[in-house]
């Protein structure tokens, strides 16, 4: 984490590490501001490691926040505002990767792995029934002791 944050800090640092949403950016209409924040949480700050633009202090994140708010004021729906950004920056800007053929492996493998693992565990358990706990008879016990002695 240090490295990533340090790298992010270096990228951001020369311009200013302020922080995230600034009061001056916020919209006076609370419903609109809440929508803008919800959208911002889904979008990645392009120069940071996995921080959303709502939380990032980078200049680019600031620009995107202002952009989103402008689109909403202009009457865009949430989907239109997101699409506006994705059209310019690509899917990379989405913190939640889209579910599409290229990402099927990503999205479905966690559950596939659990299913395969569960099947494997089930087969392992079904291997043999639990035998009753019988004490060794005298012959077996002698044999065991001989084996143990051989070992030493």
């Amino acid at each position: 984490m240090i490295r990533a944050l340090a790298a992010a800090a270096i990228l951001v640092g020369l311009v200013h590490v302020a922080f995230a949403v600034e009061p001056s950016e916020m919209l006076s209409n609370p419903t609109l501001e809440a929508r803008a924040e919800a959208i911002g949480r889904q979008l990645r700050c392009l120069v940071c490691q996995n921080e959303s633009i709502e939380d990032s202090g980078a200049d680019l994140a600031h620009d995107l926040r202002v952009l989103i708010r402008e689109r909403l004021k202009a009457g865009d729906t949430d989907a239109q505002a997101v699409k506006y950004v994705v059209d310019r920056y690509g899917d990379f800007v989405l913190l939640k990767p889209p579910v599409e053929p290229a990402t099927y492996v990503l999205w479905f493998s966690p559950f596939a792995i659990l299913a395969i693992g569960a099947a494997g565990a089930w087969l392992y358990l079904r291997r043999r029934p639990v035998p009753p706990d019988e004490p060794l008879d005298l012959n077996q016990r002698r044999k065991l002791e001989r084996l143990l002695l051989d070992d030493q």
Binding site: L95, K96, P110
Partner: peptide, 19 residues
Amino acid sequence: GGPKLSVGYPFFDRTFVPL
């Protein structure tokens, strides 16, 4: 050579957490 993607908290919220 595929598309560039980000895998952020929404992915893990939907996979890691339910697991």
